[in-house]
Nucleic acid binder design. Structure first.
Length: 290
DNA sequence: CACTTGACCTGTCCGC
DNA sequence: TGCGGACAGGTCAAGT
């Protein structure tokens, strides 16, 4: 599920809800979702306070106050949901969802000293959460190879073009999804960005001209910033740290819009397959170039 | 090395 | 209603 805007939304929610809380208990149900031993959990997690919450690419980093961190990737179906006085009870809008917790897909529960809890749910078990020394995060294979953050002010069009030089023969959609090129773009925002830039997803990177690169650079940033503003996309499982859904798909132009009409030219949006992924395009606005 | 495909899991939906 | 197959927001290992 979660791409950059969803992970950013979760991280912001957690920052508001859990920073400063003291961990008193941790339980988890399988080693794939949370591989650390009981000894590590007891020594470095129980008793610690939450120091801060960060995001890098599609990864959430929860820093503890003693040089250890919880690193989490939600992959397709992961959720990080908090339930406490701040967001539950007295008619809060997500009460029904929060009341169900834990659910069958709950893989990890973290209880704080005030009785509130953080739940890591993940239906498909592709996601994971790991406890490790903060200083070691940058040495994880994923962080060694991951590309720059496309929404940073310092990320320029020149940076963007340069990152794609290594992928000249691949389809532009495959390159956008490759986290080593730029961080954070997934299937929803790849399709939305390519529609906005009027580029066919199978276009070879080497055949894009500079005006197409410029349109794509602006589209990627526009679409993901808009999505953050709307709280991300809930296509299926995604919820934010309060258990609420995101509204970006109300503003989507192609993703899961097959059969409806293109907002730009009125042609019918179609669904196809590119880079092994379901892909949505306007066949008139987005012509195959090479 | 660049690039593509299958595997990892569970659940849901769609056609027969 | 049951059953098989395709598909789902991501990444990696193994293949060409």
């Amino acid at each position: 599920m979660p791409e950059l805007p969803e992970v950013e939304t979760v991280a912001r929610g957690l920052r508001r809800l859990i920073v400063g809380k003291n961990i008193v208990k941790v339980s988890h149900d399988n080693a794939k979702s949370f591989p650390n031993s009981l000894v590590e959990v007891n020594n470095f997690m129980v008793g610690a306070n939450i120091g801060g919450v960060r995001r890098r690419a599609k990864v959430i980093i929860i820093d503890l106050d003693d040089s250890w961190s919880l690193v989490a990737h939600l992959k397709m179906t992961g959720q990080m949901v908090y339930r406490g006085e701040e967001n539950w009870g007295a008619g809060h809008p997500n009460d029904d969802f929060l009341a169900e917790l834990p659910v069958r897909a709950t893989r990890v529960q973290i209880e704080f000293s005030d009785g509130s809890k953080l739940f890591f749910n993940d239906q498909r078990k592709f996601g994971w959460m790991k406890l490790l020394p903060t200083a070691e995060i940058k040495n994880m294979p994923f962080f060694i190879k991951v590309g720059p953050e496309p929404l940073e002010d310092s990320f320029t069009l020149e940076n963007f073009i340069d990152r794609f030089k290594r992928k000249k023969r691949s389809a532009i959609k495959a390159a956008l999804l490759d986290q080593s090129v730029i961080a954070g773009v997934g299937n929803i925002y790849a399709d939305e960005s390519l529609w906005r830039a009027q580029i066919h997803p199978e276009t070879r990177v080497e055949s894009l001209d500079s005006s197409e690169f410029k349109r794509l650079y602006e589209a990627v940033r526009y679409v993901m910033n808009l999505s953050i503003e709307k709280g991300g996309s809930t296509a299926r499982n995604y919820v934010n740290a309060d258990g609420g859904k995101g509204n970006y798909l109300d503003y989507a132009n192609v993703f899961r819009k097959e059969g409806s009409l293109c907002a730009r030219c009125g042609s019918e949006i179609i669904k196809t397959r590119v880079a092994g992924r379901g892909t949505h395009i306007c066949p008139v606005c987005q012509k195959v170039k090479a």
